[in-house]
Amino acid sequence: MFLVTGATGDLGRRIVRLLCDRQKPVRSFVRLTSRYGELEYRGSEIFIGDLQQDKDIHKACQGVKYIISAHGGNGNPAAVDYRSNIELIDRAKEFGVEHFVFISVLGADRGYEDAPTFKAKREVEKYLQASGLNYTILRPSGFASNVLTLAERFRETGIYLLVGDPKNRASIVSTDDLARIAVESVDLPGAKNQIFPVGGPEILERREIPQIFGKIFDQEPFVVNIPLFMFDGVRSAIGLVNPFAKDSLGTLRVLLGNEFFCTSDEIANLESIFNFKLETLEMFLRRYLGV
């Protein structure tokens, strides 16, 4: 039995689908208010609970052989990104879980002090490494499924909003590839007790993304480039009214202001261990957009 947290998110939903397609028993940890009907229809067991409640995590982990932690903080990194994962790890030890897959973030080890999510993920990584459990830690770059939303907006308007330095580089990973890597990590000796940066096969400058959109839709992109200092000004103004909101925007500020890409050697290592070719951003978008 696999337990998947964040099962109705972009990544978690794909993980559950893949497990169901492979006829693996899977328990999806979901909130009562989430849309989990598709997962139930596909054959997943549904566990309705709250990741901020230790008793719910305790119940969800019973009878589980593998855990894939794919949930995000939803604005509360301390409680959800950090505390819930610590509880998951403790219960995994209690119930003899054989392998724990943790979805972290590329750059978690860089010490970004202004990014609560990065700090929480890094502390969970260290706790998991010291736990005695078999683990795989995946540090993905940006999800291609997030870019899909931008592509849909571009198709409607022809406008692309780019905040920050257009030359900043990223290696955006196919969310389907990341789901496959997460699922297959539990069986591959080469993935045992390893940390993997996970990105797409290309290193793209951010200004290249609207060019990909233009190529797909045969439309010249109109790029609006907003300097990062304008974002900083808005964030500071928000902080005067709501300091918590300013802090929560710290992670976004780090994402906008820095580069997040995998080296060619890191990608080659991933493709070798998991034995498949990673999908480019353009290929991912064409599959989902039908163009």
Results as ranks from 00 to 15, higher is better:
2 F>R: 02
5 T>R: 02
6 G>K: 02
9 G>C: 04
10 D>Q: 14
14 R>F: 07
17 R>W: 01
21 D>I: 08
24 K>C: 11
28 S>V: 02
29 F>E: 09
32 L>D: 14
37 G>F: 14
39 L>G: 03
41 Y>E: 15
52 Q>L: 12
55 K>V: 13
56 D>T: 04
60 A>Q: 00
67 I>Y: 02
73 G>N: 04
78 A>R: 15
81 D>N: 01
87 E>H: 11
88 L>M: 14
90 D>T: 12
92 A>N: 03
93 K>G: 11
94 E>D: 08
94 E>T: 08
96 G>C: 09
99 H>N: 12
104 S>D: 05
105 V>A: 13
117 T>L: 13
123 E>N: 10
133 L>P: 08
146 N>L: 11
151 A>E: 05
152 E>P: 00
170 A>M: 13
175 T>K: 03
180 R>C: 05
181 I>C: 12
184 E>S: 15
186 V>Q: 10
191 A>L: 06
195 I>F: 06
195 I>Q: 01
212 I>D: 01
212 I>K: 07
216 I>G: 02
218 D>M: 06
223 V>S: 07
226 I>F: 14
233 G>S: 00
236 S>F: 12
237 A>I: 12
239 G>C: 06
247 D>K: 10
247 D>Y: 02
249 L>C: 00
250 G>Q: 06
250 G>R: 07
277 K>N: 12
277 K>P: 08
278 L>H: 05
283 M>D: 15
284 F>A: 01
284 F>W: 03
